[in-house]
Computed example of a mutant assay.
Amino acid sequence: MVTTQARNRTMKTNTETSRRKQRWRKNVIRAATWSIMSWNRKKAEILLEMEHHKIDICALSETKRKGKGSIKVPGYIFVYSGVSQQSRATAGVGISISEKLEQSIKDIHYISERFLKVTLNTETGKLHLFSMYALDISKA
């Protein structure tokens, strides 16, 4: 038979553990990578999956998006680097960053259509994010 004191201790321990987990979750950044084979046709699916899995940052390759820049999409900022507007849409990289981290974006370097760097200011210092797309030897 469980005494009232033992039950209260268990409840207190569970509450403390729950609070600790909540504090820990606030400081966690979930990151992922994904070869998407075209942003334009799959945007809704990509955003839905990122939201479902609670992903804060996702490095995307094969976006096949032309130009360089960033756009706001529901819940995220999508930073991308692709081929010039006159070229056929191939390769391309991007990084989707949760809106909650928008104020942390410090710097964006559009290095090429295959390489993108975004720097975030975090509580613990700078966080450098890279999205790269390597050449497929069979297509060279």
Rank of each mutant, 00 (worst) to 15 (best):
M1W: 15
T3S: 15
T4W: 02
Q5V: 05
R9M: 14
T10G: 02
T10N: 09
M11F: 06
N14L: 15
N14C: 12
E16C: 03
E16P: 04
T17N: 14
T17L: 15
S18P: 11
R19F: 09
V28N: 00
V28I: 15
V28D: 00
I29K: 05
A31P: 11
W34P: 15
W34A: 06
M37W: 12
M37V: 05
S38G: 01
N40F: 11
N40S: 09
K42Q: 15
E45T: 03
E45Q: 09
I46M: 08
I46H: 04
I46L: 13
E51S: 09
E51M: 08
H52N: 10
H53N: 13
K54L: 13
K54M: 11
D56N: 15
D56T: 10
I57E: 07
C58E: 04
L60T: 00
L60N: 03
L60K: 03
K64S: 04
K64Q: 14
G67Y: 00
G67Q: 01
G69Q: 02
K72T: 05
I77D: 07
I77L: 14
I77G: 04
F78W: 13
V79D: 00
V79I: 15
S81L: 02
V83G: 02
S84T: 05
S84N: 08
Q85S: 04
T90Y: 04
G94N: 02
G94L: 06
G94E: 04
S96V: 12
I97P: 12
E99M: 15
E102S: 11
Q103A: 09
I108K: 01
Y110P: 06
S112D: 02
E113S: 06
E113Y: 01
K117Q: 10
N121Y: 00
T124F: 13
K126C: 08
K126Y: 09
H128F: 03
H128Y: 03
L129G: 06
F130M: 08
F130W: 12
A134T: 04
L135F: 05
D136N: 14
D136E: 13
S138D: 07
K139Y: 02
K139N: 03
K139E: 13
